[in-house]
Simulated assay, not measured.
Amino acid sequence: MDYRFLGRTGLRVSRIGFGVYSLTGLYGSVPEEDAIELLRYAERLGINFFDTADVYANGYGEELLCRAFGERGMARIVVATKIGYDFYSRRTPPPRRYDETYLLWASEKSSERLCKKPIDLIQIHNPSLHVLRDMSFWKTVERLTEEGFAKHVGVALGPETDVLEHAIILLQHGRVESIQFVYNILEQEPGATIARMAASRGVGTIARVPHGGGVLDESITLAEARNLSDHRSLRRNGWYEWAFKVYSEVKNVLENAPGTPGQKALRFVIDSAPIDAVIVVAKNKDRLKEYIEALELPPLVNDIIRTLREIYTKYVEESPEKPAKSLSIMRTWASVFEQIGY
């Protein structure tokens, strides 16, 4: 396992982090005893960075970590959770709340479930542009560390990928220490630009969805994708058809690169942008071990990365989830981004 510091936080994290949401029903069901064993196995393989959220199965994603490692074991690992969805309201879908009273209370509840205080990293979960422009929100962010709820505070952007404007606003504030976003071969922007912007400011970068919902590691077929009922079914209509079409070209480019499809997808994320940690989802030991072994492979050569970027550029305008606003910002500010090294 490789390790690096998450931005300027001082947190030493494994390059491969474990996405606990894969064990909470969002990617199909996993028996609790199997989930606990998989989490412990992940630590034995060298993973020390575990990413979850309070909203995952209404707190279960946090409770699961405490059950797997216990209070003493939780001190060994780096835990990142997310707050901002008020699942306590029992409304469907849960409303987003970012007011001071709620965020402080939600942080306390997360600490109780995780049997850990302060939490290593609390990420504000999918805040809107309106929230990010509100100065009272940033004062609340400061209170999370000042009052001992979190060692560090970051932001997880989403659920959509068209979030470059969000990143630009939050990076203007010096209070954010990490940023999490979608980044993979099929969804390269605005992730690549966000990563460069964040890294230049010493902000930690966490990439998620490295396998594009199962397309890039070939863990799902198009027929299966059309019948999904879990979290992956939230993709816009037609996205999987588009993704498999693009992947047919991507696969040819990667044919002679070493590793499995899933490993090659991870190498792209790690080799093509300044990413501190990439969050993987795995429901069994073999798949998790395969992902970790990607770190033992040689980096993708620049020519391959360049060609994969060209394929993305060629097809992105056809994507049902095209990040139109982000691409427009990038085109408008292209010369400025180039001058300052983005």
Rank of each mutant, 00 (worst) to 15 (best):
N48W: 07
I206G: 01
H173R: 14
T9R: 04
R196W: 10
L308Y: 05
W105C: 14
V78N: 10
K264R: 15
D162H: 00
S107F: 06
K116F: 03
T92K: 09
C66D: 13
A150F: 06
V316H: 06
S248N: 15
R196A: 06
Y183N: 10
I206W: 00
G191Q: 07
F337G: 01
L45W: 07
P190E: 11
E108C: 05
Q263W: 05
L144M: 09
K322C: 10
F69I: 06
G70Q: 11
H152C: 12
M74D: 04
L266Y: 05
R226N: 01
E160L: 12
W242I: 01
V141L: 12
A192D: 01
I169M: 12
F137N: 03
A195M: 07
F5M: 11
R143K: 15
S22I: 15
I179V: 15
Y98V: 00
G259L: 07
Y291Q: 06
S22D: 15
V336M: 13
Q123H: 12
P274A: 03
A150Q: 10
P159I: 11
S110M: 14
P258D: 00
T221K: 02
Y98G: 00
E310I: 06
P31I: 06
W239I: 07
R201P: 03
E218R: 15
T9G: 04
Q180S: 11
Y85H: 11
G214I: 00
A42S: 03
L114I: 04
P118M: 15
V215A: 09
L288S: 10
R12C: 04
S229F: 03
H231N: 13
Y98D: 00
